[in-house]
Amino acid sequence: MMKSETSKNNEQQLKNASNAALASLLNLTILPVISFIALLFIYKKTQPGNIDHYHAVLGIKINITAALALFLVSTLMIVLGGFHSPWTWVYVITYFTIVHTIFIVFAIWALVRSWSGDKLRSKHN
């Protein structure tokens, strides 16, 4: 009975971890904001120390960092460079595209790790 409950709990954790990583990826790609809200809801359901909590926190961290790196830095570039300067757009568009892609690739890796119930750095089983 105990074993079955543990196994059920593990399955639920794995499911939550996958959902959290997926929400993180979706927020970075086709469903921004809504997915982040979903990620926060998933986070609320998790317990510290569990794998789902780890992936929910990781997802939140990735997305907040991405928001800062993309919007804050881009805004700063526009403010400092000037809206009507072509060079501003050279930097902003190139920077935004490459950095956004890096975050997406990172979130894909996080999703894959969540599917196997692993942390980012834990050794492969």
Binding site: P86, W87, W89, V90, Y91, I93, T94, T97, I98
Partner: peptide, 18 residues
């Protein structure tokens, strides 16, 4: 190749603007 792409992207954006 990443840098070739970034430099060409920069060139392209400036080209479009000008």
């Amino acid at each position: 190749m990443v840098f070739i792409t970034l430099f060409l992207t920069g060139a392209g954006i400036l080209q479009v603007y000008l």
